[in-house]
Design a protein around this nucleic acid. Structure first.
Lengths: 252, 252
DNA sequence: CGGGGACTTGATACTGTTCAATTTCCGTGG
DNA sequence: CCACGGAAATTGAACAGTATCAAGTCCCCG
């Protein structure tokens, strides 16, 4: 696959740098905002050339495993979770195509959480040593890497806000709206999609029990906000969901 | 202050590189793990030379403010908080001497949270553009920056676990033990310290109401685990607190 | 020395959990 | 292809943990 790609680069002058680096690996996240020359782009392209397939249930990495690479999800769906020694588990995120995963491992050279495929997926490996090396030469790559790391921090802060100060209904509404927006960004319907995760996993992520997730979804359905049947959801009233997130009782 | 420092560098051969870069600014976090030549160290030293004082209640930065620099806390104590439009606020962290703050702003060039001094504090400014520039030249600085960013991600994951799967008692025990450990690292007593924040702020951080914080602290005192009088805490039984965090009822 | 914020404590209300019983669905093997 | 078995999901009822509301105290700062 890769050689063919390189030929494309050389032959097709009309190909924008963007499309070159992203054609081997649909890395919206990694490539979109960068302005690179063709030559530079090829270097980035080389970096992310390794591609692996994972089946549903497979671990992309396990907590404690030696850190070697970041991973760019090309297709599919993952969850990340941290395990407490006493058996508690907390889902820390759901990741879909175009997102980068594994950044927790940089700090200690070992992964701090598990990443598990929720459906069959393809992933590009980004050897971190080489990424650092290359980003020393390419300021725009460097800047982009920093943005990705920082975005993860901001995302986590949002989840803290959610877990620390929202009620069950609000959390679930935020969750659905977030999925909706992410699917929309990727060209899928923002109002009709499949949940790749179980109620239990949603509950773990949102800090509530699976029964509460189920009840709350049923409640939303009763209000006509959504239609849900097992894992297929339809959001019938996006602004209605927004209202639930907003001031439930008049605060401030 | 800075000129004097440079003279020290030139005259005192016995000064280790570490002590040079840290003498102007007590940046355990930023400097400790790096191996740099004297010349490189001086460059890092130059980078972090700007120092500012903040009084209790002052904002180090506000949400939305343009991103210009990271900040290394030299002395004092800060909190960071995110505000939801409907007035809800969530404290996302308490930062003390030696910690780096402001990394949320890299992703969008604007700060995503407020940082407020909880006591009179001194802070070193680290212009981020120059930090990036220098870290392109110094791989060990680059690596260290990445570790700091990643550590923040790991920290946030820990808080998600706390908020998502622990009960009030456990959260508070974790909180006290975490403070204890951080004070110990800095050479202060791990068992006797002042809380710099209000019950309300602790509650916001831990996802509970101030009354619950107060009650739970009283409860710990009743158990003989701690002694607390307003803001002074004494941890009388560290392993007892650990037990509270551990399996409360036999899980798994 | 006053005033107001911070804190504590109690009584009550409510949200979400726990336990339990069914039902539905999906993958597997006959 | 259908039947089966087990996991996932739904729903109900009782319960537990926190939040809420309300007094009252303490103490820090001006």
């Amino acid at each position: 696959m890769r050689p063919k790609l390189k030929e494309n680069v050389q032959k097709s002058v009309t190909l924008t740098p963007l499309r070159v680096a992203c054609s081997g690996c649909n890395l919206r996240e990694l490539c979109l905002p960068m302005k690179l020359s063709i030559a530079d782009m090829e270097q980035v392209d080389d970096l992310i050339s390794l591609k692996h397939a994972y089946q549903r249930g497979d671990y992309l990495y396990r907590s404690g495993a030696k850190f070697q690479a970041l991973y760019a999800i090309r297709t599919g769906f993952f969850k990340t979770q941290v395990l407490h020694e006493d058996g508690r588990e907390q889902v820390t995120g759901f990741q879909m195509a175009g997102e980068i995963i594994g950044m927790d491992a940089i700090s200690s050279d070992a992964h701090a959480c598990d990443a598990i495929a929720l459906e069959d997926s393809e992933v590009c490996e980004i050897p971190f040593g080489r990424l650092e090396e290359l980003s020393r030469k390419l300021p725009s790559l460097q800047r982009h890497l920093h943005r990705i790391l920082s975005r993860e921090i901001v995302r986590d802060q949002g989840i803290m806000l959610l877990l620390g100060s929202m009620r069950a209904e609000e959390r679930l509404a935020v969750f659905l709206l977030n999925l909706s927006q992410r699917y929309a960004t990727r060209g899928y319907s923002p109002t009709s999609f499949h949940l790749r995760m179980t109620r239990q996993e949603i509950g773990s992520y949102l800090g509530m029990k699976l029964e509460t997730v189920s009840r709350t979804l049923s409640h939303f359905q009763g209000l006509g906000l959504i239609s849900i049947r097992k894992k297929s959801v339809e959001l019938n009233n996006l602004s209605g969901l927004q209202t639930i997130v907003g001031p439930p009782q008049q605060l401030l």
